[in-house]
Design a protein around this nucleic acid. Structure first.
Lengths: 214, 214, 214, 214
DNA sequence: TATGAATGAGACTTCATTCAT
DNA sequence: AATGAATGAAGTCTCATTCAT
C-alpha cells in the first residue's frame, strides 16, 4: 500500500484532485525537478499534508504512476475488446489511432511515461518501466499471435522481432505526437495533426507489406 | 557567441576537458539536475571560472551541446562518405550499425540528446532540437533521394512519409540500445547486445520490403 | 494532576501500555528528540488522544517520569527491607548488585534518568532531578546512619561527604553498566558484564577500607 | 580532514568565532537539538556558509569536538608536566582541582563531553568517546604505574580495577561540578563550590586510604 | 471521548550566482 | 584572469499541536 490510510480516507474528489494536480506537475517537470512546494501552492493545502498522505516525494510519485497507468490500461483494454475479430493490421491501426486520441485528450499520461523512461533518478524506475513495457509487449504479442493463427502474417516471421518492430514503430509514432504537443509550431516530427489519421493508415500499410502474408 | 573570449583563450586541452566533463554531467543528470558544484569539484577549478567562461549554466550547456553535436555530425558524415555508391538499404544498415558503435563507444552523446528531447526546461530546447532533427531528416532524405533516383525505391513512395518512418525506426532502435546501457539486465527493450547486428539487418530488410521497388 | 481524568478513566492495562511505550521512546531518544508521531504509530492510537490525555508533550513526559521512578523506588525499598540488620557495607553491595539486575532487566529506567540529568531542555528538569537525588541521598544517608550507630564506620566520618562519595561511586558504577548496554563491544567502561559481581564486591571492599572502622 | 579548505582559508579569528559559537550551541542543546539556524543567526552569516565550510551538521560537530578536546588535552598535559615527581595522590588531587578550574572557566567543554556520552544519535559517537576515554584511562594508568613503581600503592592492587575506580570517582566529581553550573541553586550534587577544594582533598584522602600502601 | 486531517514553523541541505580580492 | 567566500532562495521532510467531526 503506497498511500497512507489518511489519504484513502479523504473525500474521493479531493484525492482525485491531488493526484491529478500531481500528475500535471510530474508530467511537466519530471520527478527530480517537480516541486512539492509548487504543487501544494496550486492545491492550496499545507505542505505537511503531502507528507502525511504519501510519506515522501517518492510515495506520491508511485501513486501518481499507478493512477496514470490505470487510465492507460483501461483505455487499451477497451480498444482490444472493441476490435475483437478484426484483421490484425486493422486492430493495430485502431490501437494507434485510439492512442493518438488518448494523447490528445490527456497528453500528461504519455508525457509521464516518457519522463520515467528518460530520466535517471526516478524511484523504482526499473520496476515501473517493466510493468509498462511488459503490458505493451504482451498486448502486441497477443494481437500478432491471433493474427498468425489466422494466417494473416508471414509464416516465417520471428514473433519477438516482429513485436519489437511493431512496438517500436507504434511507440515512436506516439512519441512524435506527444512531443508535438510540447513543441507546437516547430514542425519537428512529422505532418500536422490533421494528417495524423492518414499517417497512421500509411504506417500500418507499411507494416502489412513488411510483415503480412503474401 | 556563447563562450567568452576568456574561455576561447584557454589552452585547448583545458577547454576540451571542461566541455567533456560537463558533457558527462549533463548527460548523466539532465540540464536541471546537473550540478555545477559537482562539475567544478571534479574539474578542480574555481566555481567563478565557469561563470566567467560561460556567463551562466545555460551558456555552458549551449556549448556542451555544440561540442556533442559536432562529434555526432563528424561521425555521420564519415559514414555517408564511406558508403557512397552503395544500395540505399545497405547504406541505412551501415548507418545504423555505425550509430550503434558510436553509442557503445560514447554513450553520453546519445544520452545528452535524449535528455534534451524529453526534458522540459532545457534552455533553447526547441532550437537545439531543430538543429538535430533537421540534420537527421536531411541525412535520410538525401539517402532516400539518391536511392529513388537509382530506382531502388517504390516509385509511388511519399518521400516525407518514408523519411519519417525510416527516421523513426532507426532512432527507436538506437534509443533501445542506449537505454539498455542504463537498464542493463532488465531486458526491457529487445534482444541482447550480441544480437544487435542481426537485428539491424532484419530491421532494414523489413524496410526494404516495405519501401523497396518490387 | 498531570493527567486528565480522561486518561485515568482508561482501562488500566491501556494506561500502562501507553506509559510503557512512551517510556521506551523517551529513554531511547531523550525528551527533545522523542517523537509523538512515532509513539502513536507504535501504539496504534490517534494522535489527538495523547493531547487529550496529557495536554502536551511535557505532560506526557511528567507522567512517564513518575511511572519510571515508581518502579525504581519499589525496587530499592524491597532491597532495603530484605537486607535489614546486615552490615552496612554488605547492604551497599546488595544494593549495587540489585541495581545491576534492575538495569539488566529494564535498561530503560536508568536510561531515562540519565536523559534527564544530561539533557538541557527537559521540562521540570530541576524538580524531577531533585526528587530522584534526594531519594538516593536519603537512602544512602539512612544506611550510613544505621551503620554508624552500630559502630561499623569510622567515628570521625563526615556523613555528608561519605554519602556523596558512596552515592558517586555507586552511581558511576551503574552508569558504566548502563552505557555498556549502548556501547556494546567498545569496551569503554570497564570489565565485561560477567565480572560485574566481582567488581561490585571489590568496589565495596574499597569503600570499607576507606570509610569503615579500624 | 573534516573541514573544507574553504573554512581553513578563513581569517583565523573568524574560524575561532564560528567554532566557539558552535561549541556553545552543541554544549547547550546536544547534537540532535542544536540548531544551525540558531547558530548562523547568532553568527550573522548565511546558512549556506556552514555547509560550505563543514559539508553538513556532522562535519561541523566533528570539528567542534576536536576543538574542544584539544583544549582539554592541552590542559591535562600541562598539569602532568607541572606535577612531575610528586606523590601519586598529590598528583591526582592536583589534576582534580585543575579540572575543576577548567570547568569553572569553560563549562562548555565538559558539557559537550557529557552530551556525547549520554546522547544516542551523535555521529561517530563510539569513536569520539573512545578517543576521550582512552586518553583519560591512560592518563590515570600512567600516574598509578609511576606511583606503584615508587611503592606508593598497595602491592596487591589490580591496576585495571584501580584505574576504573579512580577514573570513576574523579569523573563523577567533575560531573557533579559541571551539573551544578546548570542546576545552580538546586544543591543537588554536593557542597557549595567554595568547598570544592576541601572536598577534593578529602576525596583523594579516601582514595589513599583505599589504594595506598600501608 | 476519540479521532485523524490540517497546519505551518522549523529542521537540514543544495544550488546557481555574485563579487571583492 | 582566476579565485573562492558569501549569499539566500528553494528544496524535502518532521514535528507538536489544533479542532471539526
Amino acid at each position: 500500500m503506497a498511500s497512507s490510510s489518511t489519504f484513502r480516507n479523504l473525500d474521493p474528489a479531493k484525492q482525485d484532485r491531488i493526484l491529478d494536480e500531481a500528475l500535471t506537475e510530474f508530467a511537466a517537470k519530471g520527478y527530480g525537478q517537480a516541486s512539492l512546494n509548487a504543487l501544494v501552492g496550486r492545491l492550496g493545502i499545507a505542505k505537511g499534508s503531502i507528507f502525511q498522505y504519501f510519506r515522501d516525494k517518492a510515495g506520491l510519485f508511485r501513486l501518481v504512476f499507478d493512477f496514470a497507468v490505470g487510465q492507460v490500461k483501461d483505455h487499451l483494454r477497451a480498444v482490444r475488446g472493441q476490435t475483437q475479430g478484426q484483421d490484425v493490421f486493422r486492430r493495430l491501426e485502431q490501437s494507434l489511432v485510439s492512442g493518438l486520441d488518448l494523447i490528445h485528450d490527456n497528453p500528461r499520461l504519455f508525457r509521464l511515461y516518457l519522463r520515467i523512461v528518460y530520466e535517471g533518478d526516478v524511484p523504482l524506475r526499473g520496476q515501473l518501466l517493466q510493468s509498462i513495457r511488459l503490458f505493451s509487449r504482451d498486448y502486441i504479442l497477443e494481437l500478432l499471435a491471433e493474427g498468425q493463427a489466422r494466417g494473416e502474417l508471414r509464416p516465417d516471421l520471428d514473433p519477438a522481432l516482429a513485436a519489437f518492430v511493431v512496438d517500436a514503430v507504434l511507440e515512436r509514432f506516439l512519441v512524435a505526437r506527444s512531443l508535438e504537443n510540447m513543441d507546437a509550431g516547430l514542425g519537428l516530427y512529422a505532418a500536422p495533426p490533421a494528417e495524423a489519421a492518414r499517417l497512421a493508415r500509411e504506417l500500418v500499410e507499411l507494416l502489412r507489406r513488411g510483415l503480412g502474408a503474401a
